[in-house]
């Protein structure tokens, strides 16, 4: 299978060619090597999981993808082009959105305002129009509000639309954060532990939303998750990291049978 081939998954979804490729990424913080010489790719339309024990460098990897960290070595290729060193807001403009491990919502704003922030880059009306807030400025606001309301409907958070997000329970905050990321209409959506701290029911809901997002919007998803059963159910392919090194890369079945992965998770007899 080459980089441009597409294939069909057992459940009937078409996975396209390579969207993003990480080539020999090395990231150091002073003397600490967070990521060491890791290469993997993310294909158009797939759900890609990054797993590994704590401190494996998973979150660092996401931060490299969305430009928050700049790796010392290695290249990031996005849609067939080598990505130069960019600021996070420029990468956001390229269509990469993310959620955070520790929810990073805007606490002083309501749910709908938080979702509206995702439309920031798509709103073009200048300062003067913003000041007047009539005509084109208002029309623009309404267009984006309508789109946000669709996403709010999609994620079933209509009832908390006007609530300040600071007051919401944890599970709902996670969902609002997903809504905000979706409002950006990303091509690649990065989810950093979307199910951390949730109960089984909330996890099921979230899994359903992730599958629906992938299915309905065709969004490519890269996610970090600790819950193995969720990962194995959702992901098309899995990368396993341990102490900044890559242990395995393959389908969930392959990864589960990989001896190095089993050793890392269960420990080895010494």
């Amino acid at each position: 299978m080459t980089a441009t081939d597409s294939y069909v998954t057992p459940d009937g979804r078409t996975i396209g060619g390579v969207m993003m490729e990480m080539k020999n990424i090395t990231l150091r913080f002073g003397g600490v090597v967070a990521i060491k010489d890791i290469s993997f790719d993310i294909r158009e339309g797939e759900i890609r999981a990054i797993i590994g024990p704590n401190g494996a460098g998973k979150s660092s990897m996401l931060n490299v993808i969305n430009g928050f960290y700049h790796p010392q070595e290695g290249e990031v290729w996005f849609r067939g082009e080598k990505r130069p060193s960019m600021k996070p807001y420029q990468i956001a403009a390229q269509g990469i959105a993310r959620t955070f491990q520790n929810i990073a919502l805007f606490h002083g704003m309501t749910t709908v305002e938080n979702v509206m922030t995702g439309r920031q880059l798509m709103m073009k009306k200048n300062f003067l129009w913003q000041m007047l807030r009539v005509g084109p400025a208002m029309a623009e606001e309404v267009v984006h509000r309508r789109r946000c309301e669709e996403i709010i409907d999609f994620l079933e958070i209509q009832h908390i639309r006007k609530e300040p997000v600071g007051n919401l329970p944890y599970g709902l905050q996670k969902r609002v954060e997903l809504a905000r990321a979706l409002a950006m209409e990303p091509k690649l959506l990065l989810l950093d532990e979307p199910m951390a701290g949730m109960n089984v029911e909330e996890k099921e809901d979230m899994s359903r939303f992730i599958l629906d997002v992938n299915d309905q919007y065709g969004t490519t998803i890269a996610l970090i998750e600790h819950d193995m059963s969720v990962v194995m159910d959702l992901a098309d392919r899995v990368v396993v990291l341990d102490y900044g090194k890559m242990l395995a890369d393959g389908t969930p079945d392959e990864v589960q049978k990989n001896q190095a992965v089993i050793d890392a998770y269960l420990g080895v007899e010494h």
Binding site: P88, Y89, A93, R98, L105, H107, Q120
Partner: peptide
């Protein structure tokens, strides 16, 4: 909104596309 984003969570604001 871009002001309030900076106020509430400047890192997230930047990752969403606020300069």
């Amino acid at each position: 909104r871009s002001w309030m984003m900076i106020r509430d969570m400047d890192i997230a604001a930047e990752l969403i596309g606020v300069r």
